[in-house]
């Protein structure tokens, strides 16, 4: 009986290990996020969690101008999937997004947009856009490790972005 329990335990552990490490870590940085930089953050987190995340960035020396919910963007997706309408809607969405990002820079004074998607398992990822040039300057895929939680993943990203 005990052997069966061990087998089950090992199987569960193996499944957890696989799900934690099934992706490949990648990071590319054309430019780091300068300390004291004015930033806006979009992250998939609840309001309370976003407050905590904002505080972590502030404590790390960044000037957080705004923080938003990554999941909210889903509401903006084009509804009509009839190909040509969908196509034009998608172009319009990108055009509106450009205007919104330029507003974040001009009205809120954020020079960088930090985007983070937190995953409990598998791969969390981050991106940074330099809002002065509209360019992607930093990307990372981070395979979530055993023992990681949202705090540790955020800490990892904050540390990696400023390296």
């Amino acid at each position: 009986m005990r052997n069966y329990s061990n087998i089950i335990l090992c199987s569960v552990l193996a499944a957890v290990l696989v799900s934690c490490g099934d992706g490949k870590n990648i990071r590319h940085s054309q430019k780091n996020l300068p300390r004291k930089a004015g930033i806006a953050i979009i992250v998939n987190a609840s309001e309370k969690e976003r407050e905590d995340i904002q505080n972590k960035f502030i404590l790390a020396g960044f000037s957080v101008k705004a923080i938003g919910d990554l999941n909210q963007n889903k509401g903006a997706q084009p509804k009509n999937l009839h190909s040509d309408t969908f196509k034009i809607d998608t172009y319009n969405l990108e055009i509106n997004k450009a205007a919104a990002l330029h507003d974040i820079r001009n009205k809120l004074g954020a020079n960088y947009l930090v985007i983070i998607k937190l995953q409990k398992r598998g791969m969390s990822w981050g991106r940074i856009i330099d809002l002065r040039t509209d360019e992607l300057i930093w990307i990372e895929n981070y395979a979530v490790q055993i023992g990681d939680d949202e705090n540790s993943i955020i800490n990892h990203f904050i540390s990696a972005m400023g390296e």
């Binding site: 990554l70 985007i115 992607l136």
Partner: peptide, 27 residues
């Protein structure tokens, strides 16, 4: 999408923000 961007960034292209926010799941 990050995996895709990686080659272009490494090759010296300037990748703009089009589609690289969270709403990529629309396509």
């Amino acid at each position: 999408l990050n995996e895709f961007y990686l080659s272009f960034m490494r090759a010296g292209y300037k990748v703009l923000f089009i589609q690289n926010n969270a709403d990529s799941d629309k396509i």
